[in-house]
Design a protein around this nucleic acid. Sequence first.
RNA 1: GGCCCCUUCGACUAGCGGUCAGGUCACAACCCUUUCAAGGUUGCGGCACGGGUUCGAAUCCCGUAGGGGUCACCA
Length: 517
Amino acid sequence: MEVVTRIAPSPTGDPHVGTAYVGLFSYVLAKKHGGRFIFRLEDTDRQRYQEASERRILEMFEWLGLTPDESPASGGPYAPYRQSERLPVYREHVDRLLASGHAYRAFETAEELEAMRVEQKRLGKPLGYDGRGRELARDEQERRAAAGEPHVVRLVTPDDGTTTFIDRLRGEISFANEEIRDPVILKSDGYPTYHLAVVVDDHLMGVTHVVRAEEWITSTPIHVLLYRAFGWELPEFVHMPILRNPDRTKLSKRKSDTSVDSYRRQGILPEALLNFLATLGWSMPDGREFFSLEEMTAAFDVGRVSLGEPVFDLKKLKFFNAKYLREILPLEEVAARAAPFLEEAGIDVGDDGDYLLDVVDVLRPRAETLVEIAEQAGYFFTDDFPYDEGARKQLAAGQTHLQAVERELSMLEFFDYDGVDDMLRDYVQDQAVGMGKVMMPLRAALTGTTSSPGVVDLIVILGKQRSLARIGRALTYIDAGLPDDDPQKAAEEAKRKEEAAKHAKGRQVAHARVKEG
RNA sequence: GGCCCCUUCGACUAGCGGUCAGGUCACAACCCUUUCAAGGUUGCGGCACGGGUUCGAAUCCCGUAGGGGUCACCA
């Protein structure tokens, strides 16, 4: 049997990690069985609709490598894939339900319904539509509708008995029918509600497995009733666990960063995000924790989805990203992906690809994201870098060693890792000082910081001339008395003073208030 | 509150009647070390509780508790 799954996001904002999560499992389930993965836009809510959202969500799927077989962008045999463009389809199906007596037109106003709810609350009765619209005679319904009176169409649901369906992960789930209260299937603006649209489209598009988040379980009986009303065969339902905030509530942008675009901008790799998401609720049969989309697809078994309530842990995402950065992806790949981030940080990468490779090679064990690589790369691409406070201290203490190393280095014959390394070690031994006494001032001269890759690596990557020039520059700087005239530093200092002033003012104000009180 | 779902270390999970309850992140210590990382080793830490079923339960059943979801002309 062909397996057809879909992801059906609403274009209401940033591409959400939850959408990526459910999309991943939908995609993998379909591909595991050589089936189709459909992207359908659920844009029936005109209030919350956001123009740019559709494109960005689609781009997210491309970026992740979860390319849909059919979508609003690529089209397909069941087009259109935007629900707002399928209104006639829904209208036609609503008419069928109306004709068969499975639905009726209801004319209550929003105020009326609100009053009903208030009354139900007051009496402590269960909330929900009481079915009052069913009373209205058919010809009366049609007459008022024809007269242009605004109304909705509701599904007739049974008053007793139970509706049962099989959740692929949880087994049988049943609801008392009295809990299901004639839901609206066509809104007064002529748009279908989610319930109607999802059932009609899933059926028409041949969807065999409905993969969606657990929050939909309670509306599934409505869908089951709709399938029955149409006389259609039920798909399989796979309700994925809901991703959680650290406080275990449903993942929300209020409490967590849920935007995939945001992670992308931070330099999270799509492979890492996918791999991390996969481990939230699924595990490889052999226990491997790092695997590609292809490997997951090959090994996928929906029965291995776990039912916990996984917390979206940013630290672990970062860990996965770091792992991909320094171990899983080849150096060339990481360099290619880091380049745009360097440019973004105002660094002119130039066209020396080998140099970039060397830089990324020493930086990647020190970074968890591409942005962090960019943040640390500055001094590799400019000779005009500032010296931070720690570096100035090292320079002040290391003048003689710098002068000596400058001499030794300029005379060095074998300029490679071992050559430089031997030279420095010999020097340290001759002087009978600690390594740090020599290395730290060198590091400061070479990078302007006290934290960096190994000094020998630095010298080899920068090259003899550049290294010498930097030592020379540092020496000149020492001669000038290590002035704190770095513009960046000065700006920071000014800002700090401003902050301090603000705080002082705040304290005064607070103080004044206390006095007044 | 009604209904529905869920429950193994702080987090993600393995386990599907017999295991010293395993792994990963985080945290800690140690090693390595010219700094910062990375890497290596070790440690910390768990079957929510109570009843059953069984020779034997993390595993099966029933309760309880806790957490979550949902109760719209939003999806």
